[in-house]
Design a protein around this nucleic acid. Structure first.
Length: 270
DNA sequence: CCAACGTCCTGCGTGC
DNA sequence: TGCACGCAGGACGTTG
């Protein structure tokens, strides 16, 4: 299967920046919810007549702040995305939610409908259980070591566990472990201090590079300004089974861990 | 507490 | 050509 990939931390970060440019300062005029179960908590119409003041992310959650301590959260899950209506020439299918402004319209599109939107005016947040954000300055080698030390699962599953580290999904888990030269099947608590340091540096550098490239672009992730992210051109192992490792030429392998595909170079990653 | 697994959902690729 | 089927995967609830 080509395309159809999932927004992870870098894509969500790119979407937040795009959203900031588009909606901060704008006042909501009306809303439309064509699939009610997308709204997980609260009522979307409570944002009408309120103005967006900031957009930021934590892990893969997006937080939209409005005036009067009103907040809207979104999680894109597999196929969610935000589109700005002015940029759309043709009609787009699978629009689940519309947030209208005087001079434009923010669309929430979600083919598989697993994403969600939360409205909160009492301080409750849907991201209570999230672990450390890997771009937070508190994400040091020591912090990572502490989180790995008691885990007997494969290191790849730890990287993808949002309550331990928030923001890494299936694509970047493989890419980060390739960059660090660590086999995804390694039991997390068996990593040495040196390996943990390499892993932390790989997480930071791979995610940062992805953000600087505008996020990995696949079919369900489109920047509304029409520019596509370019990071997919830099993927080293993800979906490259059978191709030559860019570092040593060995054939990239695909394995399955916890019902998910992992990709690795069996020579470079130990 | 930790780990494993089923569930949600739809489009697409595969095989007959 | 058409149709049934299985796969893709993030997060969460349930179970062990």
């Amino acid at each position: 299967m080509k395309g159809c990939e999932v927004p992870e931390l870098p894509e969500v970060e790119s979407i937040c920046r795009m959203l900031t440019d588009r909606i901060v300062g704008r006042k909501v005029v009306s809303v439309d919810v064509s699939l009610p179960r997308i709204i997980r908590c609260g009522r979307l119409d409570s944002i009408i007549n309120h103005r967006f003041s900031s957009v930021y992310r934590r892990g893969k959650y997006i937080c939209f702040e409005l005036d009067d301590s009103l907040k809207m959260f979104a999680h894109l899950r597999m196929t969610g995305t935000f589109l700005w209506k002015d940029d759309l020439i043709e009609t787009v299918s699978h629009i689940r939610v519309e947030i209208r402004f005087e001079d434009g319209c923010l669309l929430y599109r979600d083919v598989r409908t697993l994403g969600g939107i939360w409205i909160s005016n009492d301080g409750t947040e849907p991201w209570q259980t999230l672990g450390i954000d890997p771009l937070d300055e508190e994400f040091t080698s020591e912090a990572l070591a502490k989180r790995l030390s008691k885990r007997k699962m494969a290191v790849k599953q730890v990287l993808m566990n949002q309550s331990i580290i928030a923001g890494i999904g299936n694509i970047y888990a493989s890419e980060v472990l390739f960059s660090a030269g660590i086999d995804p099947q390694r039991i997390a608590c068996s990593l040495t201090v040196l390996e943990i340091e390499r892993l932390r540096n790989a997480i930071t550098s791979v995610l940062s590079a992805a953000i600087n490239s505008g996020g990995t672009t696949f079919r369900d992730f489109r920047l509304s300004d029409g520019k596509d992210g370019a990071f997919q051109e830099f993927l080293k192992v993800y979906r490259k089974a059978g191709e030559a490792c860019s570092r040593c030429g060995t054939k990239i392998r695909r394995i399955v861990q916890a019902q998910r595909s992992s990709y690795l170079c069996p020579k470079c990653q130990r």
